[in-house]
Design a protein around this nucleic acid. Structure first.
Lengths: 348, 348
DNA sequence: TTGAAAGCGTTACCAC
DNA sequence: GTGGTAACGCTTTCAA
């Protein structure tokens, strides 16, 4: 049987409380006794108080739960997500708090129970669509929760629509008038392919909705009504699906002169699709992304820089050390349009 | 006060056990009663059994602890580590198990308590030097532990020395005879700069030790004794420190014709240093790395490909579903020398 | 099908 | 400085 506090207490001939104090409140007993207890523990093979029992008793788990878009492993394929996590991890570490990556899995029921079974003091929700039931389950736990997408009590985000509006204006200024928008969660069915988005406002995913709003407004300002804009859904936020979605757009006749993707990963895929067809980015077709992931610079991709690391860091801060002033619990960070060679004047 | 099982039991007029069954063993009570209980819970605002209490009672935490090289956030800056984590996350998810990233922090004492306070069912230790006390603390917990570096009961790794021997032979075959080895944890002091490694066998870090052994053996076979090989320590596994270490080597006269780094990240930094000096990689100076991270291909870096994702996946498998056959609990994966333009014949 | 009782391993409070 | 006692919130026999 594994040793417990009691085992050690018996061995030394003191009470449980004293052993407990030896670990948690060294000032409550004499250094000699403490050393004697620790020594006995070592001899017996007692590795210290059981963390779960301690958590239960103390009412604090010592970890915050991280909810990521359905599959956990996906988080690590997305360079933006990795940066976000890095910021979050840093804050957590400073607060001596663990990060529990919650295994949402593919099925809804599993995700629900995973959220309900997570021993955490709060949740950081990232990139989980609002209609996903796991979100409500997390909310129901009644724990602090910071969300980068919805406007909750704790919030850190960017003005998504303003950012994409800037991208759209950049393109219309360059003379573009035929656009294709490539994004995830913008289709009625989850396949990669053309779709019709009546109005961006109706989209269930916050990020897609806001970003599309921005594009639409910019295009409309240049006289291009939304129904004339091609929209292509990407099943997942991967380079492959980005390429497939772009392929669809490029194979129309006439094809769009500008491909605007809602993420860099999709945009990088779009560049792949251009290359395959011998089209020159920025000359034959312009391409834009969003996020400014590390690979974007190398690919010469015009995009929106958003502070991923900062966003993660602040999310952690909000969760672990919320400001007293409610107003400061809602943070909006700045973004910046980064123009690179993937965009250029519309071909005549 | 937060509602508990009892609150719900009282509200419905049943016992705690029945409410517990409603959640954990639906087959133990009538569907009607169950629905009635769940409904009451919803009304009261009870989000389901407290995960910590459940863990305590069941004796299972439902998570595995991940121990990463001192700073947690570092894990996310290292592309190899991210791939490893992705594999681990996938396995964990399949087993409906969480991943607890343990906040080791910078100081030793903090790391110890972090390890002792982690509510987990096992540990996956990655890239934590053996002399780091957190390792012993993890060991002392008496939980299953998989280590990619040391030969424990559960092990998944590669033949590090054989892999670097192949790199060394590649270079000696190309005619190189003046080498500089750049690596982390190879210096007596933790600064970036020249150091003397009497014998690789004496290094405290398993990975560095093994990798240097391989280089030494290959160089020796070509008639270059170890003391003639320049060794430069890199304080951290970052591109910056790789560049700084390479700078030192390149600024000697005569400088080495080949820079062998123990990781790709360091090697990419070395390429930066070459570029700064107007030296051509593969022509003036050859450079090699280790890992084959995504950026290595783009940089034309000769390196050793090792299955990072697979390594993480298997680590998880070993922890969560250990094979009955003890022999199969120790896995060694294959590596492959990938030759790219960063290596070429030694200049005459 | 339901309920009573006995822990799981701790910590906090309050006497001594 | 030390030790009793009572929770923390749950699950699990076992008996009804």
């Amino acid at each position: 049987m594994r040793p417990t506090l009691q085992t050690v207490a018996d061995a030394v001939g003191v009470s449980r409380s004293t052993v407990s104090n030896a670990y948690g409140r060294p000032d409550q007993l004499s250094p000699e006794l403490r050393e004697k207890i620790l020594e006995a523990a070592r001899r017996i093979g007692y590795a210290g108080p059981n963390p779960t029992a301690r958590s239960l008793r103390r009412g604090r788990a010592g970890a915050i739960g991280v909810l990521f878009t359905p599959t956990l492993s996906y988080a690590f394929t997305d360079p933006y997500a990795v940066e976000f996590l890095r910021g979050l991890a840093e804050t957590a570490e400073n607060h001596r708090t663990g990060l529990l990556l919650v295994p949402l899995g593919a099925d809804d029921e599993g995700a629900l129970s995973a959220v309900r079974e997570a021993s955490v003091d709060g949740f950081c929700v990232y990139c989980v669509p609002g209609w996903y039931r796991a979100m409500s389950a997390a909310l129901a736990r009644g724990l602090p929760m910071v969300n980068s997408e919805y406007q909750g009590e704790l919030y850190v985000g960017i003005d998504e629509a303003a950012a994409t509006r800037a991208v759209g204006e950049h393109l219309t200024t360059l003379g573009h008038r035929r656009f294709a928008v490539i994004g995830t969660y913008i289709g009625t069915d989850p396949e990669t392919g053309p779709t019709t988005v009546g109005a961006p406002e109706d989209l269930p995913s916050y990020v897609s909705r806001e970003r599309l709003r921005g594009y639409r407004d910019a295009f409309a300002a240049a006289g291009v009504p939304w129904p004339d804009v091609m929209t292509v859904n990407a099943a997942t936020n991967t380079r492959e699906d980005g390429a497939a979605a772009a392929a669809y757009a490029l194979d129309r006749d006439p094809h769009p002169t500008a491909l605007v993707a809602t993420t860099d990963v999709l945009a990088l895929g779009a560049l792949d699709a251009l290359r395959e067809r011998g089209l020159r980015a920025g000359a034959d077709v312009s391409v834009t992304g969003f996020d400014d992931v590390p690979a974007a610079a190398g690919a010469g991709l015009t995009t929106v820089r958003q502070p991923a690391y900062e966003r993660g860091r602040i999310a952690g801060e909000l969760l672990l050390d919320p400001p007293d002033d409610p107003a400061r619990r809602r943070v909006t960070l700045d973004t910046e349009l980064v123009v690179r060679p993937s965009t250029g004047p519309a071909p005549v």
